[in-house]
């Protein structure tokens, strides 16, 4: 076993923590035992995935209430990267979110976050968990 990392973070539901969480993602990826190119790509991707997932939890699940907490769990093994973001909000239907319109004439300001997560990770699920919700994202590493 070369890579075996499990990190739990709990933060208030506020966008001011985006930078910190993104940095943690970068640092986790930089420590992985894998080829340099893979490590650099994962560093960038993990920062984006954590940021988008956290913003999703803050804006759509916890309604930006800083009194609410968001729990983040990052697990890396030799085979998989798994990110789980837990919120206590009302939740949303992941399947109801459409793919963005890519045409210059149909451009929308919003609606790219979930598309980005689905593009960077192998699976993205959002489901009920212990009275709240969890956004679970997995990526195969080997």
């Amino acid at each position: 076993m070369k890579n075996d990392i499990d990190i739990d973070i709990t933060i208030p539901s506020h966008t001011r923590y985006l930078r910190m969480i993104g940095r943690i993602g970068e640092k986790v990826a930089e420590e992985l035992d894998c080829p340099k190119d893979t490590r650099e790509a994962l560093s960038c991707q993990l920062a984006v995935v954590l940021t988008e997932g956290l913003v999703n939890a803050i804006k759509h699940a916890s309604r930006a209430d800083p009194d609410k907490e968001i729990h983040i769990r990052i697990n890396v093994s030799d085979k998989n990267l798994v990110v789980r973001i837990y919120d206590n909000g009302v939740g949303f239907d992941l399947d109801s979110i459409p793919t963005p319109n890519f045409s210059p004439h149909g451009l929308e300001e919003k609606g790219r976050g979930i598309f980005i997560l689905r593009s960077l990770m192998d699976t993205v699920k959002y489901k009920r968990s212990d009275g709240g919700n969890v956004l679970e994202m997995k990526k195969k590493l080997a």
């Binding site: 984006v48 940021t51 790219r112 980005i116």
Partner: peptide, 16 residues
């Protein structure tokens, strides 16, 4: 050095 979907969305808003 880092942009997310919210940042992209604001540039799209400006474009519109």
């Amino acid at each position: 050095h880092f942009i997310d979907s919210s940042g992209l969305g604001v540039l799209v808003s400006g474009y519109k």
